[in-house]
């Protein structure tokens, strides 16, 4: 099978979806690596699964959690690891809404 080619635009698109930034250099070196990874996963294309139906693991409606409210964590514990908090809230630089 022919190796899937990856363009720099494609990698940039994926970086965007991933919320990751790469330097142009990193992007370029990423391409052959990524093509190798695709070569690996592209093997699934050889497999005929046309007659296979994915089965979902399920539970019955009756087995679901009952609607009982319980105590939450204290606010200070919720905010414990936050890089920045103000007024009992997580805080980020002001956004335009």
């Amino acid at each position: 099978m022919e190796k899937t080619k990856v363009t720099i635009e494609e990698v940039k698109r994926l970086a965007g979806l991933s919320s990751l930034e790469f330097s142009e250099e990193e992007l370029k070196s990423f391409i052959p690596e990524f093509e190798n990874m695709l070569e690996l996963v592209d093997q699934v294309k050889n497999c005929d699964v046309s007659d296979v139906e994915v089965k979902y693991t399920s539970h019955k409606l009756a087995q679901l959690r009952e609607d009982c409210a319980k105590d939450s964590l204290p606010q200070e514990e919720i905010l414990l690891n936050s890089p920045k908090t103000k007024k009992g809230s997580f805080c980020v630089p002001k956004m335009l809404d």
């Binding site: 959690r65 609607d67 009982c68 409210a69 319980k70 939450s72 964590l73 204290p74 606010q75 919720i78 905010l79 007024k87 009992g88 809230s89 997580f90």
Partner: peptide, 22 residues
């Protein structure tokens, strides 16, 4: 509902910020 959809925190409007959280 009394509780949230995926946890048992209160489904309540108007509480102090981040107090109905888990």
């Amino acid at each position: 509902t009394n509780s949230k959809v995926f946890c048992s925190c209160k489904n309540q409007f108007g509480s102090t910020p981040n107090t109905n959280c888990c």
